[in-house]
Amino acid sequence: MQRPSLTGGFRDAPKDAAFAFRAVMNTMAKPGEINSVTGAEPPAGLSIAAGVVLLTLCDPETPVYLAPRFDLPEVRDWITFHTGAPFVAASAAHFALGTWGELPLGDFPVGSAAYPDRSATLIVEVDDLRSEGATLSGPGIKDSAALSLPDRAAIQQNAALFPRGLDFIFTCGDRLAALPRSTKVS
């Protein structure tokens, strides 16, 4: 019997997750940097990078929101089997997975002024990820960096909430980039 949800996880979880986390951490620390990751084979059109991020960061303590395009039985089964993360509405999510257009940006927790860390991290599947387009500056960036972003205005609005706000991880194939709330976009 075919059980695709049981396969496609890390083969050597401690080491695969360690390499994956360093790639994710470097992108979050250096907005605009694009890194490749390996180790996950997620189902149903999910990118390798999105799968790796889910396996590296999610577990039963992190409720996940799935945008409609990814809210499929095979995706749910795969995430449940490999991470145990519960599925919730956007307003209760620690992590979210979807394409830019499908993610209800206004609904996710952005943290409070006292606890700005209690905010969601959005894993955004994009068709194209390049070091060109919007100009980035801020912590982690020497002078300026460039990254193809789906929607400059919404991201500027998010940055204006600092220290509250959402953090984004853009995934495309086996590559990923990150955009924390601290980055100024122009």
Binding site: A17, F21, V24, M25, C58, P116, F162, P163, P180, R181
Partner: peptide, 21 residues
């Protein structure tokens, strides 16, 4: 253990997103 590391890793990512907090 891996679950502890994931918890610490999530805290590290948030700390990088909010420098100094």
């Amino acid at each position: 253990d891996e679950q502890t590391k994931r918890m610490i890793r999530r805290a590290i990512l948030k700390s990088l997103a909010i420098p100094g907090y």
